[in-house]
Design a protein around this nucleic acid. Structure first.
Lengths: 305, 305
DNA sequence: ACCAGTTACGTGAGCCGTAAGCATT
DNA sequence: AATGCTTACGGCTCACGTAACTGGT
């Protein structure tokens, strides 16, 4: 009996899919298939009914699920309760983009400090382009940025999407919404620094709309962009999470623009060779925080709608 | 985290010894040492204080123990509850000596039948010599008999000791106890079949005492020996467990003889190559039953004294 | 010298990922 | 053709056993 197999079983039961479980556990479909097969062989019981488009728990599988969850939960509690807080120690050079600073990074840092007080955090906040460059020059152990990193001996995990919107000060005199993207070009655009993906996205949007946008101002800091937008100096595209406070305070309003801007897909990258335990562990924690943040966002949206 | 490591940790905590744990789990001291070291490394916590003559739980280890026991217990319950009763199926040719028939074999058989109804039991009861011969000719999958089997690709487990004593009918006219072994030679000796180890032990005892015992009668069956002894036809050496009923009924009495007869050390043997899952599993069950039987015997003795 | 736990090291089983297979839409 | 699980297979990691080591009586 193998705890990893039990955990795999639980995820397959939750997701009703071998391939989704493989993604979730960062392994292959074949590995998941083999783990379940091994578990079924060992128990002499069929845990899942597989017909071609679906995977469902058998009655035996249902009985096994609650027990398996107990075992895995107890094991995690065991690790948490007994494991020395000093077990993971050392320095972690982490790079992150500003958008996550305005969403779940504070929670992540707090959790790292509480769980591993002997890990020394060294945080760099910059654009994805800069973060990626530093990561490839091995100046960073863990890079949290847009887009996956495809490189040998680098593990890249999708952490979550941060939805974005256009924002402006409430007193700005804008046409009736929904605004076509082209119409925004009449105002100064407060945008991420040149060369960043959001910057390029904005350019492409305007290009698609047949408009040449010249009034793009470039900043490295979301906070700066927000302050300038609140002062009615232009319109800006931000992660919704960053704008939340200003919206609530009435200093910004969200613009309905077509097409809506794409979300920021946040990924974490770290080397697998050499293996970096701290980076791997923190990447898992980041994934959990990003997931919780996404869930919270959706729940609030659900409450509002 | 590995369940086998947790189980090893529990046994070391119970036995306060790495080597005893290695024996109990049928592995090497080095393996136990490495498992504990790995667990300690993973948790970043020292679980045991080792000074040279003793192993003791640290406070952290004590906290870990109860949780580890929960996890292992849940896992065993998981296996028991979910595992198909039909998972283990097939035929098991088992040989056993008469002494275990009169101690824990009935319980073992009942448990096998309840746990694995699809296992077909094929039981041979004979002397250790005969059982061993059949086992070596591959006529038996599992041999339960005296003495370990030392052979390549054969696993031999010590199951437990069955204490033995001399017995006679209460109305037999014997000298005052404790009786020196030599004095027994005056009566017919109802003994195990010639060539069996108890038979040889008796012969050696008499030889050591300088007495030539000619009145040895040979039987293959403990039940026969008991019936004849109850009819005052001689004195006999039996496992205490077998004589228990006759003692309680007043049909036999236990004789204090010096030196006392040696106990019967019962071992189980099965081939590791080819690997025989049923035999291995049943050997473990036999070990558990023999241990429980031994505990029960000692408890009763403790109650009486 | 002996005992009990640790360390070193070569070996083997088990698990993984790649890739091909298979059945169905 | 695409999807989604299974099977086959080579590679690699990790745990094991053997054996040497350590440190204390």
């Amino acid at each position: 009996m193998n705890l990893r197999f039990l955990e795999t079983f639980i995820w397959v039961a939750r997701l009703n899919s071998f391939s989704a479980t493989a993604d979730r556990l960062h392994t292959t479909q074949a590995a998941v298939s083999n783990r379940i097969a091994a578990l079924e062989r060992e128990l002499g019981v069929r845990l899942f009914d597989r017909d071609l488009r679906s995977v469902r728990l058998t009655p035996e599988g249902r009985a096994a699920l609650s027990r398996a969850e107990d075992i895995v939960r107890l094991t995690q509690e065991f690790q948490g309760a007994i494991s020395s807080k000093d077990a993971l120690r050392g320095r972690l050079a982490m790079g992150a983009i500003d958008s996550v600073v305005h969403s779940w990074l504070p929670r992540l840092i707090r959790r790292i400090q509480q769980t591993y007080p002997c890990v020394e955090l060294d945080l760099t906040v910059d654009t994805s382009l800069t973060i990626a460059g530093q990561f490839h020059r091995s100046e960073l152990d863990l890079a949290i940025m847009m887009g996956p990193v495809i490189a040998p001996q680098v593990e890249s995990r999708f952490l979550g999407s941060l939805p974005c919107s256009w924002y402006a000060a409430p007193d700005m005199d804008l046409p009736a919404e929904p605004l076509p993207i082209a119409s925004l070009a009449a105002w100064p655009i407060l945008a991420f620094s040149r060369g960043s993906k959001p910057h390029q996205d904005i350019l492409r949007h305007f290009a698609d709309a047949g408009v040449k946008a010249t009034a793009l101002s470039n900043f490295n800091s979301i906070a700066t962009m927000m302050i300038l937008a609140e002062d009615s100096l232009g319109v800006t595209m931000l992660p919704d999470a960053a704008a939340q406070g200003a919206i609530t305070a009435g200093r910004l309003r969200r613009l309905a623009v077509t097409p809506p801007p794409p979300p920021i897909d946040v990924h974490a990258a770290y080397t697998t060779q050499p293996r970096n335990t701290i980076a791997t562990t923190v990447a898992s924690m980041a994934q959990a925080e990003a997931e919780a943040f996404g869930r919270r966002g959706r729940d609030e949206e659900g409450d509002a709608g």
